[in-house]
C-alpha cells in the first residue's frame, strides 16, 4: 500500500486500470439494463414497477459499500498519514452521496404506485435518509477549510465517528419505528428471488461497482493534477512577486 503513496506511480497504475473498469461498467450496465427492461418477467404482484428494483437495490448496496470504503480510507489516512487516502475519501464521498440519493429517489418513485405515497417513515427509508445526511456532512466538512489537507483530516475523523454511529442509528430507527408503527404497510419481503430477476440485479450491481471504481479513479487523478497545478501557480506567483519587489523598492 505504501508503494502507491507516490502519486506518479499511482497515476500510471490508474491509467492502466481505468479503461478496464470503465469498459466493464459499460458492458455490465448495458447487459443489466437489457435484462432488466426486456428479458426479465414482470412481477406477479407488482407488475412492471418491479423493474425499478434493478436500479434501486444496487444503489442501496452501493450507498453502504461506498461508506465502508470511505471509512477504510479515513482509517488509512489517520493511521499511516497516507496522502492518497485523503484524495480517495474526497473523491468517493460525492459518488456515494449520489448513489444514496438515487436509492431514495427511485425508492419514492417505487413507493408511489406500491404504497400510494412517495414517502413513509419506514425504518429502512429513514436510515438511508440519515446516511445521506452523513455523506453531506462529510462533503461539507472536507470542503470547509482553506487548506484542503486540513479538511481531509477533519472529515476522516468524522467518517470514523460516523461508522461507530451507523449501526446505532440503524438500531434506534428500527426501535423508533416499531414504537410508532404506521397504520398498515405491506412489506415486500420475498422469501426467494427467481434467477430471471437475480441475473439483471447482479449485473446491475457489478456495473454500479465498476462505475464507482472508474469514477473514483478519474476524480483522484483530477485532484492530483489540480493540486500540481495549484502548486505550480503558487511557485510562479511567488517568483513573480520576488521579481517585482526590487522595482517597487527602487520606485
Amino acid at each position: 500500500m505504501q508503494r502507491f503513496a507516490n502519486p506518479g506511480r499511482f497515476l500510471r497504475l490508474a491509467r492502466a486500470v481505468y479503461p478496464w473498469t470503465a469498459g466493464l461498467a459499460v458492458l455490465c450496465l448495458a447487459a443489466g439494463l437489457w435484462f432488466a427492461f426486456v428479458a426479465s418477467p414482470p412481477d406477479y404482484q407488482m407488475g412492471e414497477t418491479v423493474r425499478i428494483m434493478y436500479v434501486h437495490v444496487p444503489a442501496a448496496w452501493m450507498a453502504l459499500f461506498v461508506y465502508t470504503n470511505l471509512a477504510v480510507a479515513a482509517a488509512v489516512l489517520l493511521v499511516w498519514k497516507h496522502p492518497l487516502a485523503e484524495l480517495a475519501g474526497r473523491a468517493m464521498a460525492p459518488v456515494g452521496a449520489c448513489f444514496t440519493a438515487l436509492c431514495l429517489i427511485t425508492g419514492s418513485l417505487w413507493g408511489q404506485p406500491m404504497w400510494g405515497t412517495f414517502w413513509v417513515w419506514d425504518a429502512r427509508l429513514t436510515s438511508v435518509l440519515v446516511l445521506f445526511f452523513l455523506y453531506l456532512g462529510y462533503i461539507a466538512l472536507s470542503n470547509a477549510f482553506d487548506d484542503p489537507t486540513r479538511g481531509g483530516k477533519a472529515a476522516a475523523i468524522l467518517a470514523l465517528v460516523g461508522v461507530v454511529n451507523v449501526p446505532i442509528i440503524k438500531f434506534s430507527v428500527d426501535w423508533w419505528n416499531t414504537l410508532h408503527q404506521p397504520a398498515s404497510l405491506t412489506r415486500l419481503d420475498a422469501p426467494a428471488i427467481h434467477a430471471s430477476m437475480l441475473v439483471p440485479l447482479l449485473l446491475m450491481a457489478f456495473g454500479f461497482t465498476f462505475y464507482f471504481v472508474a469514477v473514483t479513479l478519474i476524480r483522484i487523478r483530477t485532484e492530483i493534477l489540480a493540486r500540481r497545478l495549484r502548486a505550480l501557480q503558487f511557485s510562479q506567483g511567488a517568483s513573480e512577486v520576488a521579481a517585482a519587489s526590487p522595482r517597487q523598492v527602487s520606485a
Binding site: F133, L141, V161, N165, W176
Partner: peptide
C-alpha cells in the same frame, strides 16, 4: 452552520430513546 450538519444526524438515537 456546519456543526449542525455534522452533529444532528448523530443525535438521532439519543432523541429516539
Amino acid at each position: 452552520v456546519l456543526i449542525a450538519l455534522l452533529i444532528l444526524p448523530l443525535y438521532i438515537p439519543i432523541l429516539v430513546f
